[in-house]
Amino acid sequence: MSNRKKISFGKAVFALFCWFYAAISIYPVIWLLFYSFKNNSEIFVTNPFGIPTTLHVENYAKAWSQYNVPMYFLNSLIVSVATVVLTIAFALLFSYATSRMRFKGRFIMTIYLSLGMFIPVQAILIPVAKTVNSLGLDTTRWGLILVYTAINLSFATLVYYGSLKGLPVELEEAACIDGANIVTCFLKIIVPLVKPATATLVIYIFLNAWNEFILANVLVVKDELKTLPLGILFLQGAFTTDWGAMGATMVIASLPTILLYVIFSKKVEDAMTIGGAVKG
């Protein structure tokens, strides 16, 4: 009896600790949401911790109309979506060729592209900036999009390669006998079959592109091409004292990824961890 008591006491302490850390993990985010609806006196003096007493929606209006948030938001959206589309297309085409078709050098090609897994983006920061600049891409969105595509390709081709190797060839054989050419076969048979892998990759690449900072920081030279992470940094420098509107800006920037997570939580966790598992 006393033994059982000891165990349940230990369990209670454990459970308490788990909830305590959960609070540390989530409360800062909730606090951000709270203060994005408060005015300065409430944030600093009257009510720093709790639920806002009156909802200062004007913080959001201000962020949206005065802080260029729509522009940053649109830039992030264009860059992220374009990165997803290009990476998916290039990776699937490449993996289809290396996993199904017969030609010399396909093994070397596969190894070559997977080298990217071992290269941290930090390491290529300087030469990539130089390359993008000398190609004249630094004044367009293409610089960022193509670099993001390149750094995601290794992982995406690996995922598609694995998924294609697990698919039977019979369907393609049947299509071939029916007289379909390789492009039709690719579009009508392969693309629908690898949908689960595509869903994982879309989430992974979108989240990474939306939140990416290090490369964007050196590759984007024009103000009007800045993505949200850069925009937030710039705004923080310019409007240090207006906490409410800054909070609103950060909430707007985080909303798409948080919503994505809330709606597809299991799928997002899987996608993110597959990324880590292959990269490790």
């Binding site: 592209l113 080298l115 030469p127 993008v132 390149a150 390709l153 290794s154």
Partner: peptide, 14 residues
């Protein structure tokens, strides 16, 4: 496409 983008934006820089 994959080889080109990877070569220009990752392999050449490294």
């Amino acid at each position: 496409p994959a080889l080109l983008v990877f070569s220009v934006m990752v392999f050449y820089p490294i």
